[in-house]
Design a protein around this nucleic acid. Sequence first.
RNA 1: GGGCGAGUAGCUCAGUUGGUCUAGAGCACCUGCCUUACAAGCAGGGGGUCGGGGGUUCGACUCCCUCCUCGCCCA
Length: 901
Amino acid sequence: MSIQFPKAYQPKESESKWYEIWQKNNIYKSNEFSENEKYSILMPPPNVTGILHFGHVLNNTIQDIYIRFKRMSGYEVCWFSGIDHAGIATQSRVEKELAIQNISRYDLGREKFLEKVWEWKNTYGGIILKQLRLLGISADWSRTIFTMDANHSKAVIEVFIRLYEEGLIYKGKRIINWSPLAQTALSDEEVEFREVKEHLYTLRYKFPNSDKYLSVATVRPETIFGDVAVAVNPKDERYKDLIGKTVIVPLVGREVKIIGDDYADPTFGTGCVKITPAHDPNDFEIGLRHNLEQINTINPDGTLNELTGEYNNIERFKARKLILKKLEELDLVEKIESYTHNVGFSQRGGEAIEPYLSDQWFVKMKPLAEMALKPVQDGEIKFHPEHWIKTYTHWLSNVRDWCISRQLWWGHRIPIYYSKDGRIVAAHNEEEARIKLNLKNDEQITQDSDVLDTWFSSWLWPLTTMEWLKEENPNNKILEAFQPTDLLVTAPDIIFFWVARMIMANLKFKNIIPFKNVYFTSIIRDGKGRKLSKSLGNSPDPINIIEKYGADAVRFTMIYLSPLGADVKMDVNVQDQDIPSMEIGRNFANKIWNAGRFLLMKIEELEVNDLNNDAILNDNELSISDKWIMSRYNSTLESTKNYLDKFKLNEYSKSIYDFIWRDYCDWYLEILKIQLNSSTDNSYKIKLLNFAIKLYQDIIMLLHPIMPFITEEIWHLLGNKDENESISLSLLPEVNYQLINQEYENKFELIQLLVEEFRRLRAGANIPINNKLPIIIKSNKQEIIDLLKEMQIIIKSFAKASSIEINPENVINDNSIKSVIREIELFIITEGSIDVEKEIERLNKEILRLENNITGCQKKLSNEKFVNNASPEIVNNEREKLQSMQESLIKTKENLAKIRK
RNA sequence: GGGCGAGUAGCUCAGUUGGUCUAGAGCACCUGCCUUACAAGCAGGGGGUCGGGGGUUCGACUCCCUCCUCGCCCA
């Protein structure tokens, strides 16, 4: 046994061993033709460049718990997985590598560059899916897809064409969010706003042929080259007469009009605002209203362009300083104030976004948003926690059009073709485009050079994972079987990027909701409440943590610490790159392990040969403890299911944890020892042990979804199972409601209270553990006397008593420590003298407590309004409570009197 | 500026339609134990005016109002 069952659980070997066996036997492969009820989950596809972090760990553990739980509940489950091609992230990764060799993507050209990206993807991409296996994820890996796969691309193109032809996709010249680093447009969702301390500069715009000037406030003096007007509020008394006049843009020398527009806020700055339509979204709108020119003065890489003269090719922020210096020299700066405002930054590159005027492709969102709103508001799609519905609704009600074109090469190329004479068509390929445009083979045709936003492909995830439009699968049974999926587990930060858009796409193209439930995971933070991040160094590699504590421990701890809707805080030891909180799970695993060790030891001790024999205890052979633990087990099984249904994952883990540790190990196994020791009937002992083991095996099954490895290991060790069988394919027992028995739970609880009181008395009197003393228990209720008699061996053992007497005839030795619990009197007969002072103090304290409670209780009951208004149950309860406390008080006072005597 | 969420023990959190005896648990802390499953353990202990104020009610951690503090999202 010692080899199989070492003293402490060793997760490492067992984890790699079992995952390999699971893979080898393909046990997580799903079957769309199964007759069983289906349960499916779509794994949020990690980026192809991604590596495992704790967000993934939490997210995938949650999914795996549901998948395993449902699988063990008889469902045909399927967990769809895959990887996202992640346009910007992947392209910049490969570009960075090329840069080391001093090669740019333009040196290679589009085709060669894409070859490089594929090469990179095939070598390094998708590591994370291998890492997830270390966590014990039971996805159906055979269905893994990649968002650049032919079938997925086909769906993306198809969807683009349909939307274009329906008029829901259009091209427009707009101010978009430009990433100077990636040199592409970004959607609004890819921009993060942060508060930045900058300066508000008040500049002097002189009137023509005059020394008088208008003071204009701006935070971006480097954009003055694009100024085409100055706006004032038409209601602003100070300036309204100036509307129609002109001023000279400093440094530039251009004469521009003063216009009146409500946008100008009289309370902000000087009340005069410069208008630069090409470099600010608000100015752009004003420009349209007033028919102003749009002068672009910035290059795609964030440097100023040739229109800025000496500042040509100078980086925008550097240029700001230089321009300011020049303006100061010319005495055109009136004042500089510090100013805090929100600035957009690229979520990926981190650089400040440049509002940029360019031709881009957009999706009209209004009609799609309306479609997507309904199922969430109707409750057809449920969010957990619910309050995300509000955020979702708010966003969809105010949604703006989605900029989907990206000036990248890696991605799905926009299926738009242009003829030489300026006609535009959307087509699946060049050939089709020629036909649609009526062009001959030798006539020139060009495809749009942009690619689509990665999310324009991700929103089809529920469809493409299930082989939508795949030619080889025309009668698609997968979609039929598994859609709508049951659960989506995702971080709330992609609620707009992804969740909302999947709902739109599914309804638009398949007229079905993609999922029934969405669970929004919490954000993982360190002990100081900071997000885990590489730059802070507070983000240890989960792989190392799994290596140290075991995958089961990591899974369990994460769930145990993650309440629904609240952030997870884990202590991170930055120096050691360690997460000490993981001890919770590791210690728990060890506890479970040792319970198994104990049982196996007993098997050997009793020389039980056949574990699965029919030696089962009859109902009348079961003790109160046996019935109690069965009741507790079934209650736990029930609450486990309830908690999972309500998505209260941490409650789920806590109920299992408490049941196993407190009920089964601390109490039941200790009682089992006593029950085994006090019997001489070998066949009873074997039956009793069998009972305990059977229960333990059921517990192991209950635990499997959250701790798959250790449970598989124990299931085999204790059950003598064949290596190719798996606990994850066995069925969880149903809740047996008949075994949930409040009466036994109450009885047992009383015994626990008595035992705890005996322990407290011993500890209080500093009685050493090996000093066994006689105990006496007195009660005047026959029911309790019977219970005590039935449980006396157990009480005696737990109370470290040399002997136990229940309601003895003879007078009790005054040389004893006494207490009263629920009218039951407890005595420990001490041989030597007791510390009288200490005893008096303790009893007085107890008397005071009882008196206080009695007073409170009496007050309540003498209040007519309470007796009349409160439910009879409550009032009755209160009366019983009062009576019980009064009796306890009398007995405690008697005890005190005896000591004093 | 608009919206959402949270404030309960030193820390992280439970507390289910308002009533269960002393508001619970884990970690941390203190005391005693290597008791033949487990020191990654066992037994016991200390520690909370439930963010402040007001209201509804016989009764409020729980419902309402208000203020304060913190976090997130949007503009």
